[in-house]
Design a protein around this nucleic acid. Sequence first.
DNA 1: CAATCATGGATAGCGACACTATCCAACGCT
DNA 2: AGCGTTGGATAGTGTCGCTATCCATGATTG
Lengths: 228, 228
Amino acid sequence: MRLAELSTRSGVSTATIKYYLREGLLPPGHRVTATQAEYDETHLRRLRLVRALIQVGRVPIASAREVLTALEDDTLDHNSRLGTAVWALPHGPESAEEDADTQTARHTVDTLLDQPDWEHAREYGDDSPAYRMLVTAVGTLSRLGYPCAVEDLAPYARAGRQLAVADLDLIERYESPDEQLQAAVALTVLYEPVLLALRRIAQAEESNRRFGRGDSGQDDSGRGTEEE
Amino acid sequence: MRLAELSTRSGVSTATIKYYLREGLLPPGHRVTATQAEYDETHLRRLRLVRALIQVGRVPIASAREVLTALEDDTLDHNSRLGTAVWALPHGPESAEEDADTQTARHTVDTLLDQPDWEHAREYGDDSPAYRMLVTAVGTLSRLGYPCAVEDLAPYARAGRQLAVADLDLIERYESPDEQLQAAVALTVLYEPVLLALRRIAQAEESNRRFGRGDSGQDDSGRGTEEE
DNA sequence: CAATCATGGATAGCGACACTATCCAACGCT
DNA sequence: AGCGTTGGATAGTGTCGCTATCCATGATTG
């Protein structure tokens, strides 16, 4: 298929596809002549993955490239590819300074991860993106005056572990290593909005349950404030 | 305190503070003369909240303004303020077209939320940001070829509910309505990275557990690929 | 075989966003 | 009165994710 067809089938403009090709997010098509290339289903699939990562997962282009090149880096074994790919996924602004709150946060996180539930978590080193992200977020919380002790984090940690089990269950449905890798990345990123949305819906639900479903206009709270 | 002191105490440049004042993210200080204003602790606290929302929570300025104005809109009652505030929190790109995958996704989500666990979830209408976000994400997943049936979502839904309970537990620690509101927003946004980070760490852990901690370079997978 | 259209590479531009730098008149301290 | 500080307004900056234009080549068709 030609670029134009790839465009119509994916719903992505040719200009954008060319941009992705330029950026190395999409492998070049099979060159059939000096100025024309042929694309196949794998390109289409890859293109959709790229769109999903960028649009839904809010992964910046540069990170997406890293993730994708890691996925098909055949100098690495299966596990390393996955590790590298997930490693490159986005992670907050990484509080620059090493202030008191960050120190405390680091200690809290370390304590949490030293619990037996997190048998091997620390083996990845304390410089994994996820670890840093966690420290930054906890630090920010305490800087805002919201205590964030180990016992406060515990329910979230428990949820995280349950989620990981669910994730891996989904990933294990796929047989081939390649499919598993793609699935791992796609599901890691794309289930994030799913989870966060469900959490917000559940929050509204739970808030309703606790703070009473009074006749105080609860049910239409905020209606009409959305901005689209 | 003067703007300059607010700046040093918060670590935010005066230029940025002025920008926030202009954008209505920060209420103006008490004007002491025609050209000078006095700020107090509430401004400092608010400023830190703004920074947290924007930097850690990745909330766009415009949304942050909506959230914050809702928090102190005293024409609304407590619950309405919270609803309005959370309503304005960011939510993905909202897949424009109403294609087949989106339809299916909507149906899946509706089925999920019609279960007894989600007693009142639907009362907020199907146009809440969280609901739309969920539909978009599920639609994207199926568009990518990842089935996303009700039973696949179930573990995530369960996690979402547990998280909501934890969230509300944290929020209920605060006595005054104002504190609860601030806490609700801050915790909703700032626990997102906490949760996502914990999930990723747990994923690595679980992946290790399942795919064997072989001597195939598992432990240093991806090490050295981070980009800071 | 010439006219025409499509392809795809390169380059420059755009619009949104979150600041940031520069002015400048009013303050206010000494 | 002198002079640095303050804070409001305005315009500029850098980044990011595209998007529009140009153009040589190549395919297609009468």
